[in-house]
Amino acid sequence: MDAEERVTGLMGRAMAQDAELPLLVEHAVFETPDILVLDLVAASGADLPAWDPGAHIDLVLASGLVRQYSLCGDPADRGRYRVAVQREAAGRGGSIEIHNLAMQGSSVATRGPRNHFALVEAPCYLFVAGGIGVTPMLPMIRAAERGGRPWRLVYGGRSRATMGFLSDIGGRRGGETDLLPQDECGLPDLHALLSGLDDQTLVYGCGPGAMLTALEAAAASLGLSERLHIERFAAPEITPHHDMDRPFEVELRLSGLVLQVPADRSLGSVLQDADIPVTFSCQEGYCGSCECLVIEGTPDHRDTILNESEKAEGRIMMVCVGRAHSPRLVLEL
């Protein structure tokens, strides 16, 4: 998807994506002791909004928390969304709330789907997954199979007992799977893995931040960065400091407001204080829920979603962490 298509798609889908859709938990099954798989359906039995591999939905929890989970079912099945929630004891509480409350027959509000990790058409694919990062790879593998395109999955985890969807992966055709439990195999040699690629293979990576940082470094050293697509479930572990931030002004074209963003405050926090209807979840620039159109001005992008071309285009920004290079921004808010 190029920048123009992304902007057009954002304009057309924004209202639908931000609207909450109540769904019922049709099934709730533990894939592993810490991974709960939910099948969500409309109470009326109606078809759900279409999605493509790489998409995620927001779960709007009773506590007010909003969390994103990759759709890991089959896009051809319009009757249900399937997500997998890994319990994170040291997390911010969302996964624990879902594990405690999202039982069969319960209801949950959703938003989306959105897709910042779309599968680009290519002759062949290398999928690199760590832990729960395997979830967006499952529909991608199905799509590759249906298109007759070769694929390889390299899937690591702490141990086999913690690695979900092994039976699903084992039944796939048209590709190969390398299972690399860390307690048996250690950490994968990502540089060696990428060194053997032909010039037609695209690489998709999803998993822990340290794994993705290493994957990015390996791709950069081999000149493969443009062929690498990654999705993060958390902000990068090393976040650059910005001691020279300057204040700027933001005009909200739809709201008719002009707000001042001080040097020591984020644009996201200023928008929240002004009660501007923007969906914020991660507030660290990796989930995409606060994606916004830029009408005028030059954004200072600090997210991990947009690629270099999209950042240079300057027509979209993530307002939770983004700032401005220009003295003034005009946003479609």
Rank of each mutant, 00 (worst) to 15 (best):
Q260M: 11
L24S: 11
G130E: 07
E310I: 05
M244S: 15
V278H: 10
C287Y: 11
G156Q: 11
A161S: 13
L61K: 03
I276T: 11
L331A: 09
V330P: 03
S309D: 15
C206D: 06
P262K: 07
R82A: 01
L333P: 00
C282F: 09
S195L: 11
R302I: 03
R315D: 06
L271P: 04
Q17A: 14
I98D: 03
G93I: 09
E310R: 06
D58I: 00
L23A: 06
V66L: 10
R265E: 14
S95F: 06
A50D: 14
C72E: 04
A210Q: 14
P262N: 02
V330C: 09
G130I: 02
A192R: 14
L224I: 03
L228Q: 07
S159A: 14
E251M: 09
S159E: 13
R158H: 12
G171L: 05
V25E: 04
T162M: 10
V108C: 03
T162V: 08
K311A: 07
C290S: 10
T8R: 15
T239M: 15
M317S: 09
R152I: 00
R158F: 05
D264G: 09
I57T: 01
V60Y: 00
A234H: 13
P299D: 09
D77E: 13
V278K: 12
R328I: 00
S106Q: 14
M140E: 07
P123V: 04
D189P: 08
E332Q: 13
R160I: 02
R246I: 11
M137E: 03
Q272P: 02
E237V: 12
A263L: 08
L38R: 05
P75D: 03
T177W: 04
R173K: 13
